[in-house]
Each structure stands twice: as C-alpha cells, then as structure tokens.
Design a protein around this nucleic acid. Structure first.
Lengths: 140, 140
DNA sequence: CCTTGAAGCTCTAGTGACTAGAGGTTGTAG
DNA sequence: CTACAACCTCTAGTCACTAGAGCTTCAAGG
C-alpha cells in the first residue's frame, strides 16, 4: 500500500494533481486509513501511470475517461479506442501545421531586425502592426 | 468613429474580447458617447489590429503589453522587441519539437491496431498503459 | 415624435487542467 | 512520547477568453 506521496514519487504526478484527478473522476476514490489518509495499491499505481502517459501524449481528461471506460469493458470493440487515438493524432498534426506557419513568420520578423536603431522603425513592431507582410496564413 | 461592433467586424476580434482587452489594460479605455457606449477612431483600430496579429502569432498578453510600451517610447532601442520575438520563436520551436515526438508515438500507437478485436488486447490501450514501448521522449 | 429591436452596457461565473496557500490533522521515526 | 513531515479539506488563482442575465441606448421605419 502506498501513500499519496509515494504514488506521486513513483509516477511523477504531483500530489495535488492526483487529488484533482480523483475529484474529477479520473481516479476511483482511494481507500482511506482510519485517519482519513489515502492509500493506494498496485492497481491505483497502474491506473495513474496510464493517465500520466495519456496526458503526456496530450489526450484530454475527457478522452482519457473514455479510454478508461473502454478498458473496463473488454467486451467492447477497440475501434473506439483507435478512433480516440486518431482524433488525437489529427489534432497534433493540425497544431504542427499551425506552429510551422508561426515559425516561418517569427523567423522572418526576427531576422528583419538587427536590434539596432530605435523602436519607431523596428521591423518587429512594424511587422506586427501589418499582417500584409506575412507569407503564410497563421492563427492559433 | 466606430462602435465596438464595427471594430469587431473590421478586425475579426469578438466584441467581448475587445472589452476584455480593455479590462486588462491592453487597449486604452475607449471614449464614450453620452449614453456610455464605446467609440473608436483609426488609432484604436490599428492598435487592435496589432494585438490581433500578435495574438495570432502566439504572443502572450504580457508580451504584447511590453511591445506596446516599446511602440510608445520610440527613443528606446528595439533590441527589447527583438528579444521578445526571439523568445516567442524559441517557444514555438520547443512546442514543435514536442509535438513532433507526440506525432511519432501516436502514429505508432494508432497503426498497431486495426480496430478489430476486443479492447482487452487493444494496442492503443496497452501502449498507453506502458510507456516503455515508446520510441521517443515526449511530454507536454 | 414614437416605437421597435439590434446592439450596447455591466457584472458574475464558467472553461481546462491544474497550482498555491491557509489552517488544521495524522503517521512515524527516534 | 514528541517532533515534524506529510497528509487533509477548502478556497482562490492562473490564462485568455466565453456565456449569460438583466438592463440601457441607438438608429431606422412609420
């Protein structure tokens, strides 16, 4: 049996975050000692490891909830799990596309200016003032 | 002179967002009509355009505040503006690095599973349960 | 001049995924 | 048995908005 602090050390998830996961229903309410402190077993550890890994991969709490539901109903097809993963992949690719466009603009803006001179003709500032200089469509 | 709605249409920034920018000090408080409605001139329009563009490029409200300060003190060197832009670029590149690693993992996870079979041997779920399968370091 | 309704106003609360802090209680090593 | 690290709950703060309630004003048509 682990205390919340030991669980935290083993998974790298901060103590308040573990309590937060319980609060929002991602983790089943842990058993308690007589003095009301949480105690976890191996299953709790694995569950938190799963959550941690999924969060690292950018899955939302909602998506992780859905994945955990699937784990607990092994009779259901894994098609849903695959769909969730592919949605997440599409999401990541969209973000990559946008960030790449941003990178292009920021390089253009940063390089136009050598840092000398006064700010009333600073290329950074004039570029930001006028979108028409941009060579890519970008938005976040 | 523009109403807040006209300003919104011209810049693509939503009306409540414009009011929010005023509240947090990004936009100078607008002049008002006798009936207390905001009225903007060309300067207000340009300022909001600047903010919009900078937000699109992912600059934080705080960074934009600093950039606006620089605009209003043309005597100060534009080195600071360049620094802010380069910080933002470094930020974007770091995000790109992470997202690329995530993409690799998600492709691996999604492709391992054909969507058939029951979820107790679903590759998506077992991959999420065990980080050791991963081929890249990833975290967000 | 009067009515109507779109657009404006302020204020509060909610979003996601935590994080920080106050103020009190429990577990455990020495 | 004592000291104190670790635990507990609860509230509020973060960022950049967004939504909604309940009210007022502006402008066009009759």
């Amino acid at each position: 049996m682990f205390s919340i602090g030991q669980l935290s050390k083993q998974t790298g998830v901060k103590v308040p975050t573990i309590r937060y996961y319980e609060q929002v229903g991602l983790l089943v309410s842990a058993g308690r000692t007589e003095g009301n402190q949480r105690r976890y077993d191996k299953e709790g550890l694995e569950r938190l490891g799963f959550i941690r890994h999924a969060r690292d991969l950018g899955f939302s709490i909602e998506a992780i909830s859905a994945l955990i539901d699937l784990q607990q109903h092994p009779d259901r097809s894994c098609q849903e799990a695959t769909e969730i993963a592919q949605d997440q992949l599409a999401d990541v690719r969209e973000k990559l596309r946008r960030l790449t466009a941003l990178e292009t603009e920021l390089v253009r803006i940063s390089e136009g200016c050598d840092g000398d001179g006064s700010s009333n003709d600073c290329y950074v500032l004039t570029s930001l003032a006028d979108h028409r200089h941009c060579r890519t469509e970008h938005y976040c």
